[in-house]
Write a protein that binds this DNA or RNA. Structure first.
Lengths: 337, 337
DNA sequence: TTGAACATTGCACTTGTGTGCACTGGTTTT
DNA sequence: AAAACCAGTGCACACAAGTGCAATGTTCAA
């Protein structure tokens, strides 16, 4: 235990001096497949562990790829986002990547500065979970040899990899479930965020309903949150013609809506009111809610992301759609009452 | 738009050639306070934006500090953890740091390998939110000039910065609230995780109760989750002497417990049963729960973390305790009925 | 015994930065 | 007019790694 704290990190040079070998020998000891004799190898390892040496991966980056992946994300406290980040970091780590999380707002300016950070740190790839980066900046990332993966953003940006969930499919299924339950007055609950996925879900539901000759009232309130769902219910049930079946474009909205409907307006679920959500966050399965919803196949999506990053040929610009899987619980009647 | 994609990133050298100046001029253009004339500065900036140049922060690290902070965390999907990560990344970014998230398990081996990653990437500092790293490894980090900050870990490890919440204070306050509500049979609900914070909350509550001459039954089930709280309720209400006032060491446990008590055993809250939680996750405020609980002052804690990292003198080894703030809602009767 | 094959090892170069130092050319001071 | 100063610029080095190439040493077979 030497008492003098080195100001900076231990370098391979110091290890070499302590072990009485050249710096190359140290380098080779920590490189797989390099040619080192057993005695020197042992000397180096002994010196390294005595000094507390660790290879500087950042210096390595000057010659090779960095194996850094940037995750651009907003609203991380949201359960669905937290789960996405969790699954992605897990998978990326398992693939030998290290994750830099950039916590941003959804506005273009914030996302842009996040993308620039990405370039500053020579990330191999950028995964965008929130917000929409400007095309020009994505172009710059690609020109610098970076991979760009957009998740649940609808933008068909050239060169970037796109993946998302088949929102329309879920909307159609939701409509089917509500009709089978005998719901007469349908509603869609969404936020004013205007995110592509949410708009798709809303539009597809309305379109499918109109195709079946049914009217739908759309209610949009504030950000995509529990509170907004709650507020939407207040608006909806204040009106004369209250719905008896709603599709909430997000579980958080659904849970807020359900709570207000129950506790402020005395609706029984599913008897008086059927509710369907989207995302299958953990809370949707809680005893107080038992929400029927659609799960995003997050593990499959994360696996696909690392496949994209590991794949050597840079064939971007294709959009991969994943099927949401329906999760039947108790917030929708099984059939017409 | 040149069609030939450069294999690697644009370097300062290329910008210098295009602008017809020396590489030093490029470097100085992007360094605050360096001496460059306005004409060359403009030429450099023009060339840089034409080529899509971004300063390589990784190469910069070879000379100075990296301004990388590693966040070691497990169970990121848990609302309280997600919020912690969110608040910390925000604050760190605002302070000009970049965050690497290492998603780990809580066992010592996983945490150790996470710490080694930290060293490999020359992080300025490591913030540990989960698990307990071995003292030897922390010693190595410190010896390499890294800051180590442990949050809500009880270990008094030499040289590392410690911060946490005053668990005992909350426990005493919880006992007071339950007694004032007239609860006769008290219980503590915890998990089998054995995390220091949770053990402290349990012990302090039991000690305070015994000091007041009251008996407490402790129930421990599985991991620290909603499901475990639910399961605990089943056990507790299966026995003859069911409690009428419980302190759950975590909001998740509390919400699970509450749901089971209500829906499986018909308890009315707070009339038949008073419940107090800890953490003040968002769900605790939802209409179905209205849980009385204690909030961790996360913003203050995060601010303190960045203060520690920015502070030049490395005075570690002091433990800073933050006061949990009580959040009164509706899961405890205001006074004896 | 000798030559060849082979395993180690060190030198020197590469990667992209920031910066100390020396040099230049122009402006101000004495 | 000479001296002092000063802004601007480029050279060269340092940082921490990996690796091609050549030199060294060892072993083995002819």
């Amino acid at each position: 235990m030497s008492d003098l704290r080195p100001r900076s990190f231990v370098s391979a040079q110091m290890v070499a001096e302590k072990a009485g070998v050249s710096r190359s020998a140290v380098s080779r000891t920590f490189t797989d497949g390099a040619s080192v004799s057993e005695p020197t190898r042992r000397k180096v390892l002994a010196a390294a562990s005595a000094l507390g040496y660790h290879v500087n991966h950042l210096a390595r980056v000057l010659r090779e790829r960095s194996s850094i992946v940037c995750l651009v994300v907003a609203d991380m406290t949201t359960p669905i986002r937290a789960t996405m980040v969790d699954v992605l970091t897990r998978k990326l780590q398992a693939a030998g990547k290290i994750t830099m999380v950039i916590n941003t707002e959804t506005d273009t300016e914030s996302v842009s500065s996040a993308l620039r950070q990405t370039l500053n740190y020579r990330a191999d790839a950028t995964v965008v979970l929130s917000g929409t980066p400007p095309a020009a900046l994505i172009e710059t990332c690609l020109a610098n040899g970076q991979r760009v993966v957009l998740i649940n953003r609808d933008d068909q940006l050239v060169g970037s990899h796109n993946l998302g969930v088949d929102n329309a499919m879920a909307s159609v299924e939701a409509l089917y479930l509500l009709r089978r339950a005998g719901c007469q007055r349908l509603g869609v609950i969404t936020s004013t965020a205007g995110t592509a996925s949410l708009v798709q879900r809303e539009r597809a539901f309305v379109a499918a309903a109109e195709a079946a000759g049914l009217q739908v009232t759309v209610t949009s309130t504030g950000p995509t949150s529990y509170a907004s769902g709650f507020e939407s219910a207040r608006r909806v049930f204040g009106r004369s013609q209250a719905p008896d079946g709603v599709f909430c474009v997000t579980d958080l909205l659904a849970l807020g809506f359900m709570d207000a409907a129950r506790h402020e307006f005395g609706r029984r679920i599913p008897d008086d009111l059927c509710i369907i959500g989207f995302d299958d966050i953990e809370q949707a399965s809680w005893e107080s809610y038992k929400l029927t919803t659609f799960a995003q196949p997050l593990t499959a999506m994360a696996t696909h992301v690392v496949d994209l990053l590991l794949d050597p040929d840079t064939a971007g610009s294709e959009r991969r759609l994943f099927e949401p899987v329906p999760v039947w619980r108790k917030s929708v009647r099984p059939n017409a009452s």
